[in-house]
C-alpha cells in the first residue's frame, strides 16, 4: 500500500497538536481547553461516550470547524490561516461517506483527485480502490453499494492524496471483520510511513491494539491519556460505563 506521507507537510514534532482548544455550539460546550498531541509516526485512539467531543475535535483538526479559542497545528500547519496547506496534507473520514450516490466509486475518486489537483489522479484512484478491495464495485453507482463497501470507498477517498495526517471518526462503524482489518492496516501503514493517525472509536480493545497512544474525552475535556501499550482496556471501559463517566 502506497501511504508515504505527503512530503509537503510542514514538519513540526507532531502530526496533530491542540493547545487550549475550546469550541461551543450555542450553549453546548463541545471542547473545553483541550491539549492533545499526536506525534508523527504514530496512531492515537480517541475514546469517549457519545457527545464527549470526539467528532468536534476531529472536525476542528480537519479544518471543518473553527475553534473558539486555542491553537491547532494540523500536519504542522496552523489553522485556520494555513488551512489550505493543512487540507492538502490531511485525510478525513467522518460519519458520512462524502460520496456522490449517483456516481460510481471510480467517478467519485476521479472527481476528488481533480479537486485535489493530483497529477496522477486516474492511476491513483484505481490504486486506492484496489487497496480498499473495492475494485470489483468500482463501476457500480455508490447508492447500490452496501454500507460497509461505501465506507471502504470513503477511506479510499481520504487516502487519495497520500495524506500525512489521517483523521478517522468512528471508521469501524458498519464494517465487518474484514473491513475492520483493512482499516487497521491503513492506520498502521500511514503511521509506519511516518505520518500520524488520529481515530475515534467505541471499540476500546481494538482501538488500543491499533494505536500507539490513547486519549479519553469526557465532557469536552481530556480526562486521561497515555501509551496504548500500557493502557488497561477494562479500566477505560469501566470508567466510560460509569455514571457521568468518561475516564
Amino acid at each position: 500500500m502506497d501511504e508515504r506521507p505527503a512530503k509537503r507537510a510542514a514538519r513540526s514534532g507532531y502530526g496533530l497538536e491542540l493547545r487550549g482548544v475550546s469550541k461551543a455550539y450555542a450553549a453546548a460546550r463541545a471542547l473545553r481547553s483541550v491539549d492533545l498531541a499526536a506525534p508523527w509516526g504514530s496512531a492515537l485512539a480517541l475514546f469517549g461516550r457519545n457527545g464527549a467531543g470526539k467528532s468536534t475535535l476531529l472536525r476542528v483538526a480537519a479544518a471543518l470547524v473553527k475553534p473558539d479559542a486555542g491553537e491547532v497545528l494540523a500536519a504542522g500547519f496552523t489553522l485556520p490561516p494555513q488551512a489550505a496547506n493543512a487540507r492538502a496534507a490531511t485525510g478525513y473520514v467522518g460519519h458520512r461517506n462524502m460520496l456522490y450516490p449517483d456516481l460510481t466509486p471510480e467517478e467519485n475518486l476521479r472527481f476528488y483527485a481533480r479537486l485535489y489537483g493530483l497529477p496522477d489522479g486516474e492511476r491513483r484512484a484505481a490504486e486506492v480502490l484496489r487497496d480498499a478491495g473495492a475494485e470489483r464495485w468500482a463501476s457500480r453507482r455508490v447508492r447500490a453499494l452496501s454500507n460497509g463497501m461505501q465506507k471502504r470507498v470513503a477511506v479510499a477517498r481520504a487516502l487519495l492524496h497520500r495524506p500525512a495526517l489521517l483523521l478517522l471518526d468512528e471508521p469501524d462503524a458498519g464494517l465487518d471483520a474484514q473491513g475492520k482489518a483493512f482499516l487497521a492496516s491503513v492506520a498502521r501503514a500511514v503511521a509506519e510511513g511516518g505520518g500520524a493517525v488520529v481515530f475515534a472509536t467505541h471499540d476500546i480493545e481494538r482501538g488500543l491494539a491499533a494505536a500507539d497512544r490513547y486519549a479519553v474525552l469526557q465532557d469536552g475535556r481530556v480526562a486521561a491519556q497515555g501509551s496504548a501499550a500500557e493502557a488497561d482496556a477494562a479500566a477505560i471501559s469501566d470508567a466510560l460505563a460509569a455514571p457521568g463517566g468518561g475516564a
Binding site: A63, L64, Y92, R96, M98, L99, Y116
Partner: peptide, 9 residues
C-alpha cells in the same frame, strides 16, 4: 464537507 476538505480555493 468533501468540497470543504479539498485544498481548492
Amino acid at each position: 464537507d468533501g468540497l470543504r476538505l479539498a485544498p481548492a480555493p
